[in-house]
Write a protein that binds this DNA or RNA. Structure first.
Lengths: 196, 196
DNA sequence: ACAAAAACATACTATTTAGTATGTTTTTGT
DNA sequence: ACAAAAACATACTAAATAGTATGTTTTTGT
């Protein structure tokens, strides 16, 4: 990788970490410069302004991460009910990249930016839709295989599951304890079983 | 009501509106002064600093509102399944105080403040627990009445429902369309029916 | 090797921010 | 009525902020 590309990537990664911990608005460019050892000239060479960097974080960091952690685990699916439960379990429990006290980065970004910056909204919508359509697909496949009842509405189930995930991620920020994840997961399991 | 108390209440209400629309960090004290026509001297007479005002919004505005909109509707309950569905339906669809593009104030506050201000965390936890314990109670009552299966874990169900509500509120900020609420509500209804 | 462009560095600016210092006015108890 | 306290008003400050102006250094193609 070229040196300049490394600088850019370094900015995106360190900025993401800060934003994940402190929020977008409260992470200053000077914070990012201090954390990356990059100078202001370099920063503004790579990004027109702070918002352009924010969008780049979504498109160039979150999107690939989401693909490998949220989408791919769904691809090689045998049984949707197990697959979905395993995915959420993996994201909440095993995954140690995301911290309970800091929630879900996509959800955080949405909360903070969606209502007053359409560029952020669009970028976030794109990666969220990616997850939604994939989950709908595997539920539909499950219906064809007879593993899920035919009356089940795949879109509804997907929205319901995704909402729960975002919600418990946010509730975790209050509780600051992974135990709430267990509580949630147990009930999610029961719910998913009712789709049989 | 005394004049001074009115000033204080006016600050809290206008500040809440601004914060609900723009977020806590991005709402400046000067914004609040402009919106209330109150001077800085008056503001700092009533509040030691910005955070104290934020906590006061939670305790003196959100808490009572939550009581009348989230707790009381649960009190005169006959059938938990209907009551819970009606409550969430009311909050998401009929209620026109909350806007789809701005989400749930308590959820927003949690997202923005919980991880780095323990005072906010405590205040938010308190009013959230209020909702949780009430919902647990009516589920337990439903079990005694035979309206809900005995194996159902009231705490799990409550966390599951609350997560969904917070999550769909946040997803609404992305979608900016109340239709996602309908999708969610339909599936919530199916889920609640499985508790019978 | 060397010109041009890319990549980075430094110093600065204009605004915005929370908060303070120091007043004046209004209310309240006696 | 009047002193004391409560309530409010104005002008200021120091720090933080996003962004710019103007450089220097490094890389790249020929």
């Amino acid at each position: 990788m070229k040196k300049a590309a490394l600088t850019r990537l370094n900015i995106l990664q360190k900025a993401f970490e800060l934003i994940y911990e402190k929020g977008y608005q409260t992470t200053s460019i000077d914070d990012i410069l201090a954390s990356t050892q990059v100078t202001k000239g370099a920063f503004y060479y790579h990004f027109k302004n702070k918002d352009e960097m924010g969008i780049a974080i979504i498109n160039e960091l979150l999107k690939p991460t989401l693909s490998s952690n949220f989408i791919e685990p769904l691809q090689n699916d045998e049984n949707p009910i197990e697959t979905i439960h395993n995915l959420i379990h993996h994201l909440l429990i095993e995954n140690d990249f995301l911290k309970v006290q800091h929630g879900c980065p996509v959800s955080n970004f949405t909360q903070e930016m969606a209502s007053w910056n359409q560029d952020f909204s669009n970028a976030l919508n794109e990666i969220t839709q990616l997850w939604i359509t994939t989950m709908i697909e595997i539920i539909e496949r499950g219906k064809l295989k007879g593993l899920i009842r035919n009356e089940v509405n795949a879109n509804q189930v997907t929205m319901f599951v995704m909402s729960g995930y975002w919600g418990i991620r946010n509730f975790g920020k209050l509780d600051k304890n992974k135990l709430v994840y267990d509580t949630y997961l147990t009930e999610l399991k029961y719910y998913l079983e009712t789709l049989k």
